[in-house]
Design a protein around this nucleic acid. Sequence first.
DNA 1: ATCCAGTACA
DNA 2: TGTACTGGAT
Length: 310
Amino acid sequence: MPRGGSDLTPGEKSGAIAFGSRLSLDRLDSGKRAAAVDGFRGLVYRAYRDFGRDLPWRHTRDPYEILVSEVMLQQTQVGRVAQKYHEFLRAFPVFRDLYEAPLSDVLTVWQGMGYTRRAVALKRIAERVIRDCDGRLPRSPEHLQTFPGIGTATAGAICAYAYNLPTLFIETNIRRVFIHTFFGEHETVSDRQILPLVEETLDHTQPRIWYYALTDYGAALGRRLENPNRKSAGYHRQGPFEGSKRQIRSTIVRALLARGALTLGEIELLCSGTTFGADTILRELQRDGLVQPVGDQWCVAFTPGSSGTV
DNA sequence: ATCCAGTACA
DNA sequence: TGTACTGGAT
């Protein structure tokens, strides 16, 4: 494990590439290019030694526990996930617990994390793993990506962290490292441009540790730079929360969890003052597997697979 | 008031 | 290829 360091100054040992260095692999012959890749790896590992993070989900290699952490880390910062992670695993220690739990229990524990849809996805993953996969999470990124809520980044991360496989993936900290280091002059950078560098620099001898190091270096860069990911082709700012659809969605789900069930009239009341009709929002929440109608009331879906059918 | 994050589906 | 999905920190 790395230890927390403090000195960020670039004046390092002779020959070493300093924290925050910009590099280019362009127009290097193959020998020089290999040496530059080596230098980059040294830089990343040195940052890991100095600024590596001791994160709760790095104490396990259990695929279920890694899955939970990676889904939580989608769109949600480390600090908030760290608070919720153990609580979630206490409530649902293994796939079967998540499989058997009512969705409302899962959503209740999930509260505060945002993007409730991810909790629905986790429950659906548990159902497929129990029913179709003999209770074991698959090992290949391609197979993993057929599960709800698992895309390229999460699939790659699970393979690297749970199985120590040399998969290629890009998430925000990794993106930050490559944009900062290799695309300093560029105005915008797409993941397609970054991926070949991820491939070329990957340390096949220890993918798990390499990705720990890469993400920690990215996180350390993020604390001292204006976010280089603003150059990412996918980057965009978020609109205001007040009065937004996402605000009313979360209000409705929270109310349903607290009260058990609500009539359409009560939900319309929650929507008053927004430009969205209760009907539209409920339909979307139902499509997302979050709610379902019961008689003349609405409640949290019994099981996420059942969207609509009681 | 502004910032950050990966997936799904158009 | 673009856009919608949240909530807490600052």
